[in-house]
């Protein structure tokens, strides 16, 4: 089965961001979205550890370990950026000041429930939640970036999450390596599908009912999509 490569998925999400706004990119795959933001983007990236207007990683040898992102990797600060403490940072999230948080997920339900911090089966390892739960509750819009199915071929979009929940009814848009799906009051609505894929084919890989307009937009294999 043809799927979008991880980088092309990141590019696809980047191309859907508004031209201005405050955006938090979750740890892991979503972090890569930053690499595909146009140079003149008005998007201001937030990182939970206390920074607004995160810039790209510094050249090798110029890393400063007091200037890191939520994934604890060295970054830079763009012009107009600022530093603040964690309490202020989470007030930005919880208080609804962030426009969009883009998070990874293990499962998303048809009602927008999100499970992304634990699979419940940790093999005895300590659980870690970080800022996942805070982010999922606070941002004005929660977008998900994930593979459409698990490595074992099971759907990640499900009727009801079986993994421990991060937040209830928060997800508004799902970007996968096969499709873009909106979570609406009336259910899951396919906005766009990878070229060559049929709605029936996509439905087979999805654990909850999909609706679609007569002609969903087409996602090309380079991550761009039709209007």
């Amino acid at each position: 089965m043809k799927v979008l490569a991880r980088a092309d998925l990141a590019k696809m999400v980047a191309l859907h961001l508004p031209t201005e706004g405050f955006v938090n990119l979750g740890i892991g795959a979503p972090t890569q979205i930053a690499d595909f933001l146009p140079a003149d983007t008005g998007v201001i990236l937030h990182s939970e550890n206390g920074i607004l207007n995160v810039g790209p990683k510094p050249p090798s040898g110029e890393e400063d370990w007091d200037l890191i992102n939520a994934g604890k990797m060295p970054i830079t600060l763009r012009e107009g950026g600022s530093y603040f403490d964690s309490s202020t940072s989470f007030a930005m999230m919880r208080g609804g000041h962030l426009d969009i948080a883009i998070l990874g997920a293990f499962q998303v339900s048809a009602k927008g429930d999100l499970a992304n911090w634990s699979t419940g089966d940790s093999d005895g390892a300590p659980p870690g939640v970080g800022g996942a739960v805070d982010l999922a509750v606070g941002a004005k819009a929660i977008w998900i970036m994930m593979d459409h199915i698990t490595r074992e071929g099971k759907p990640r979009i499900v009727k009801k999450c079986t993994f421990p929940l991060t937040a209830v009814g928060v997800v508004s848009r799902i970007f996968t390596n096969l499709a873009i799906i909106d979570v609406t009051a009336g259910g899951l609505v396919v906005d766009a599908m990878l070229e060559g894929l049929t709605l029936a084919g996509l439905q087979d890989l999805t654990g909850a009912e999909l609706q679609a307009p007569a002609k969903p937009r087409v996602i090309r294999t380079d991550g761009t999509s039709s209007l």
Binding site: M93, R94, D134, L165
Partner: peptide, 28 residues
Amino acid sequence: PQGTLVERIRAGGAGLGGFLSPVGVGTV
């Protein structure tokens, strides 16, 4: 959760008896 952790510390330092947070509702 990280934001709750730092806010609980803030409450401790600010002499508050606690605070009401929407974070974690409907979860473990």
